[in-house]
């Protein structure tokens, strides 16, 4: 740096020098974070793609695999099941969470007493640890004697579902738990967006005789589309990453009924030490997230309304 400064000093007027020292000051602000961020995030991101084309057990020599890992994925039953389950989970969680969080936000965006109280309560499950949430859900939905099934039996359901212990019901149970946990978070985003809608729009609609549904359909929904767009992307990305909840609630079971991509990646990397192969699963996850995000951005023009109100 010192020599560079000197050459520039000789070559250029003081204006250039001022800009350089401004740059140096700015870099000094960024450096502590950038150093850690570059080494522990950017470099691993760059390597993750390369690793998926390698054979490596972490102990012996690393060797080139070409497309072997990706070809092997095709015949890996667990991978195919995990892929299908992940899409199932995302397809269930994203729309349900969005609908519930919008409902909560609309409900809370009225002149009601105790609004802060309700908002706090709805948000709370989101800050509770997933391990604690998963374990209490498992107990509540315990097939033989859990309170939920006892309640269903008193209500006359003779054979209540076996929830997370049954192949058919395990995934819906996990989806339910995750919707329950996440809706308060996205509600807060919707609530912020709702508060940005000018009240005058509703008032003039009322004067023109619009009913509550018409106001919701023609004012609220269109003006919320930027928030909806944003939430759909955040929620999709975070749903593809599901891990803790599933590991503690079902550990991918029963059988492989709730095995998902991240769990499969984790198991192949840290249980079987197939680092290269595991990276190729991670790449599929990454590609899926990217493709869906790009599609969402592409579709944005069709339905998101950025109006100037």
């Amino acid at each position: 740096m010192g020599t560079m400064k000197l050459t520039l000093k000789a070559a250029s007027p003081s204006k250039r020098r001022r800009q350089l020292s401004k740059n140096l000051v700015a870099y000094s602000f960024i450096l502590p974070n950038l150093l850690g961020f570059a080494i522990f995030t950017l470099v691993p991101i760059a390597f993750s793609l390369g690793l998926s084309f390698m054979h490596w057990d972490g102990a012996n020599e690393i060797s080139w695999a070409g497309l072997d890992n990706f070809k092997a994925l095709r015949d890996d039953d667990t991978f195919n099941i995990a892929l299908k389950n992940t899409l199932w989970y995302v397809g269930g969680t994203v729309p349900l969470t969005m609908a519930c969080s919008l409902g909560l936000a609309v409900l809370l965006n009225q002149p009601i007493r105790g609004r802060n109280f309700f908002r706090t309560v709805y948000f709370f499950p989101y800050v509770a640890s997933l391990v604690a949430v998963a374990v209490v859900w498992n107990m509540l939905f315990f097939p033989s004697a859990g309170p939920v099934n006892e309640l269903l039996r008193t209500l006359g359901v003779d054979n209540p579902p076996r929830w997370s212990a049954s192949v058919d019901w395990a995934m819906p149970t996990v989806v339910m738990a995750s919707v329950w946990r996440g809706m308060g978070y996205y509600m807060v985003i919707y609530l912020a967006a709702l508060q940005g809608i000018p009240q005058i729009l509703y008032e003039s609609a009322s004067i023109e005789g619009a009913n509550a549904w018409q106001k919701f359909r023609h004012i609220t929904v269109p003006l919320l589309t930027p928030a909806t767009f944003f939430i759909s992307i955040m929620l999709t990305i975070s749903s593809f990453k599901v891990f803790d909840l599933i590991l503690v609630m079902t550990n991918g079971g029963p059988g492989r009924a709730t095995n998902v991509l991240v769990l499969h990646t984790y198991n192949t990397a840290f249980r079987q030490f197939k680092f290269g192969y595991s990276s190729s699963i991670a790449m599929v996850l990454f590609a899926l997230v990217m493709i869906i995000t790009v599609i969402q951005f592409y579709m944005e023009k069709r339905w998101v309304e950025y109006s100037q109100v």
Binding site: F40, L42, I45, S48, F240, A282, V289
Partner: peptide
């Protein structure tokens, strides 16, 4: 450009690069 790198990394799930991180 640097800020774009920061932003872009937020969009990449951590699980995608957890293995190289572990090796590092």
């Amino acid at each position: 450009l640097l800020f774009l790198a920061y932003l872009g990394s937020i969009a990449i799930p951590w699980q995608v690069y957890m293995i190289p991180q572990f090796i590092l």
